[in-house]
């Protein structure tokens, strides 16, 4: 397979941020990637950099507040949302997030959460307008379909629900994966069905969560995949933990890790 030079010419202006700053994106790495899967963040940065994007990482970022929001602690979630907005509202340019659910939280839930707070609502609207999930950024914002990756494997892609239904992330990851040399995409039966994670639900109603997980893993085994991919490490961690407990040898990776592999 022949690849054209996909990376952006240094002179190409994808987005202009004033003061001569261009093609620079902010990384919101998410708390789970930061603490548990840092290699996902590193991969995302390297993929972006390979495409000519300068990546900045505002170091005061912590958690978007989704865990508190989803479990009904909106007061606590609001506090975390305000902190995240304080960190990112002073930045410029697109904000890239390697997670569909955290992106959905920022893009769709912050405005609901802060609707009675004019100051932060304005910040939320600004930040929401320039926040993108990682594959959404590559495909929709940058117009890419091929990042020049090579990875051998039979991959099943799990579309995590918040990205799928909240951000309509259907084609973006698949388009990128279809251009990965050596990678065969296999269809995951019932691919749009939830994996059962659900945040704290996985702990408080763990037996229901576990029962949904079993069905997902059965489907995964049936698909013949040796690699499970997704764009939300929360769901991936849940499924990887289930595979580990089963003793099933299926590798689990975030899509950025595959897109950052060239061997």
């Amino acid at each position: 397979m022949e690849h054209s030079d996909r990376s952006i010419d240094k002179e190409t202006v994808l987005f202009e941020l004033g003061d001569g700053i261009r093609n620079c994106a902010q990384l919101m790495v998410t708390c789970l990637v930061d603490a548990i899967y840092p290699s996902v963040g590193i991969s995302a940065v390297e993929v972006l950099e390979a495409q000519g994007i300068t990546v900045e990482f505002p170091s005061d970022q912590t958690c978007c507040g989704q865990p508190a929001f989803n479990s009904g602690y909106w007061k606590d979630a609001r506090a975390m949302a305000r902190h995240t907005l304080d960190v990112f509202s002073v930045t410029n340019g697109p904000i890239v997030v390697p997670s569909g659910s955290c992106t959905d939280m920022i893009v769709h839930q912050y405005t609901e959460l802060l609707k009675d707070d004019a100051e932060y609502l304005a910040k939320a609207q600004d930040v929401a307008g320039r926040t993108y999930e990682f594959t959404q950024f590559l495909v929709d914002k940058m117009g890419l379909d091929d990042v020049g990756a090579r990875f051998r494997g039979r991959a099943a892609y799990h579309s995590s629900c918040h990205g799928l239904r909240g951000l309509n992330l259907r084609e973006q990851p698949r388009v990128l994966l279809s251009h990965v040399e050596g990678l065969k995409q296999v269809e995951l039966p019932c691919s749009e069905e939830c994996c059962g994670f659900g945040g704290l639900f996985s702990v408080t109603m763990s037996s229901i969560s576990g029962s949904i997980l079993e069905r997902k893993l059965d489907n995964l085994e049936e698909s013949g995949a040796d690699l499970l991919l997704g764009n939300d490490v929360s769901c991936l961690m849940h499924m990887a933990g289930g595979l580990k407990l089963r003793g099933t040898q299926i590798e689990v990776k975030h899509i950025s890790e595959v897109l950052n592999t060239h061997d």
Binding site: I36, P38, S59, S207, S209, L213, G241
Partner: peptide, 21 residues
Amino acid sequence: GWTDHRNFRALAKKSFGQQWA
């Protein structure tokens, strides 16, 4: 509840923030 149905992934030795720094 988590480990009743799946294993738990330990946190990374070095966080992304540390690696970035």
